[in-house]
Simulated assay, not measured.
Amino acid sequence: MSDKPAAQNSVGATWASLRARWNDLPRPMQWLVGSPVILLLALLPVIDPPYISTTAVDFGATMAQVAMVALIAIGLNVVVGQTGLLDLGYVGFYAVGAYVVALMTSSASPLWSSADHGLFSGPWAWLACVPVAIVITGITGVILGTPTLRVRGDYLAIVTLGFGEIVRLLADNLTGLTNGAAGLNDVLFPELGKSAAHPDGVFSNSNDSGISYGIWWYWLGIVAIIIVLLIVGNLERSRVGRSWIAIREDEDAAEIMGVPTFKYKLWAFVIGAGVGGLSGAIYAGQVQYVDPKAFTVINSMLFLCAVVLGGQGNKFGVIVGAFVVVYLPARVQGIEIGGQSLGDYKYLFFGITLVLLMIFRPEGLFPARARLVTFGRKVYSTARRVPESDAAAQEAH
């Protein structure tokens, strides 16, 4: 009986030592050490390992959806995890980004009277739309955040929930603009890698052989995730990130100490909205069809579930949460019990998982570490060692 706690303490000490060494590495060195892991993850759908690959659905398409939801979770984590603002309508920003790309490139869009849209109808049309979608979604975040960020807690959650539903209902009812429930088809995508085998390019959904279109979208999602992680990581280590943490811990205390809380909350909303718009642009290009049914409250809850499962405030934790939310239902989709696929019970499983998680690990699978507190402890321990060394030197004299 006594050996088991000792072994657990040894494993915990080893893990803590490895984590401390990792945190002590410079940021470029961390990326260099982590690059083989990123490369392995990128090659995962190409390797198609038998015990990990999905059987009922395409594994490459599943991993592309994982990358897209991971990107959404990183943006939502800025709002919920780092700033402590409960946003239940994040799917609204996701919808705005998708509809911007669809309206600017779809052949069914009423914005254009002819098939020639200029810059938005050529092979680079999707890439040209991405910055437009990010900017417009960021402006939407300003429009929503300016009047609503003065409320807190449950009131903010209700307002953002209403925003998500307003966007979906507008997309469903503005038939003259969005084509209503029929949606917008023929959304353009990056026309890269055209050949005799792939006349529409490697990103087209007609590319279902060899390295399928899902794998290419997965790689594009990984590139987008790395770029967003670099931007968000730099913000975390700046005055903006420290202000977000102060607001999350105690907004009143932060305001008393001189932090312009409204300004930095609006920053978080705009940055989160921009990342959501980027995710929506990737979704529109990958599916090549946009309709209101993809932007329901349930999807918004799943995005929040990924953040809570992975660990609020931990960028890499929410990526793991996104993987769990997307991959596990797809993995058990082909397993049937009593004639019913286990994938159909995903909401039941997520509910049970969240209840158990809140009981046994309320901070998520990978809770965020307070780096400033850790640094403070190092300073404190160093300050204690200095007087001890001085006292020893005095005794020696």
Rank of each mutant, 00 (worst) to 15 (best):
Ala20His: 05
Asn23His: 05
Asp24His: 05
Leu25Cys: 07
Leu25Thr: 06
Leu25Trp: 09
Pro26Tyr: 04
Pro26Phe: 05
Pro26Asp: 13
Pro26Val: 06
Arg27Trp: 14
Pro28Thr: 13
Pro28Phe: 08
Pro28Val: 14
Gln30Met: 05
Gln30Leu: 01
Gln30Asn: 10
Trp31Arg: 11
Trp31Tyr: 15
Leu32Arg: 12
Leu32Cys: 14
Leu32Gly: 14
Val33Leu: 15
Val33Gly: 09
Val33Gln: 09
Val33Arg: 11
Gly34His: 07
Ser35Asn: 05
Pro36Phe: 09
Ile38Thr: 10
Ile38Phe: 07
Leu39Ile: 15
Leu39Ala: 15
Leu39His: 03
Leu40Arg: 06
Leu40Gln: 07
Leu40Ile: 13
Leu41Glu: 02
Leu41His: 11
Leu41Gly: 12
Leu43Arg: 04
Leu44Asn: 11
Leu44Val: 10
Leu44Pro: 08
Pro45Met: 14
Pro45Gly: 13
Val46Glu: 01
Val46Tyr: 11
Val46Cys: 00
Val46Asp: 00
Ile47His: 02
Ile47Tyr: 06
Asp48Tyr: 06
Asp48Phe: 01
Pro49Trp: 09
Pro49Gln: 15
Pro50Met: 03
Tyr51Arg: 08
Tyr51Met: 09
Tyr51Asp: 08
Tyr51Thr: 09
Ile52Thr: 12
Ser53Tyr: 00
Thr55Val: 12
Ala56Val: 07
Val57Lys: 02
Asp58Lys: 14
Met63Ser: 03
Ala64Asp: 04
Gln65Asp: 12
Val66Glu: 02
Val66His: 01
Val66Gln: 00
Ala67Cys: 09
Ala67Tyr: 00
Ala67Arg: 03
Val69Leu: 15
Val69Glu: 02
Val69Gly: 00
Ala70Arg: 09
Leu71Cys: 10
Leu71His: 06
Ile72Cys: 15
Ala73Arg: 07
Gly75Lys: 08
Gly75Phe: 00
Gly75Asp: 02
Gly75Trp: 02
Gly75Arg: 08
Gly75Tyr: 06
Leu76Thr: 11
Leu76Asp: 06
Leu76His: 14
Asn77Tyr: 05
Val78Ala: 05
Val79Phe: 05
Val80Asn: 12
Val80Arg: 01
Val80Lys: 03
Gly81His: 09
Gly81Cys: 11
Gly81Leu: 07
Gln82Tyr: 13
Gln82Arg: 12
Thr83Ser: 15
Gly84Gln: 04
Gly84Tyr: 07
Leu85Tyr: 01
Leu85Arg: 04
Leu86Ile: 15
Leu86Val: 14
Tyr90Gly: 14
Val91Asp: 00
Val91Ala: 08
Val91Phe: 01
Val91Met: 08
Gly92Gln: 08
Gly92Leu: 10
Gly92Phe: 08
Tyr94Asp: 02
Ala95Leu: 10
Val96Leu: 13
Val96Trp: 00
Gly97Lys: 04
Ala98Phe: 03
Ala98His: 06
Tyr99Asn: 12
Tyr99Phe: 09
Tyr99Leu: 06
Tyr99Gly: 05
Val100Gly: 01
Val101Phe: 04
Ala102Arg: 01
Leu103His: 02
Met104Asp: 02
Thr105His: 02
Thr105Arg: 02
Ser106His: 03
Ser107Trp: 00
Ser107Gln: 11
Ser107Arg: 10
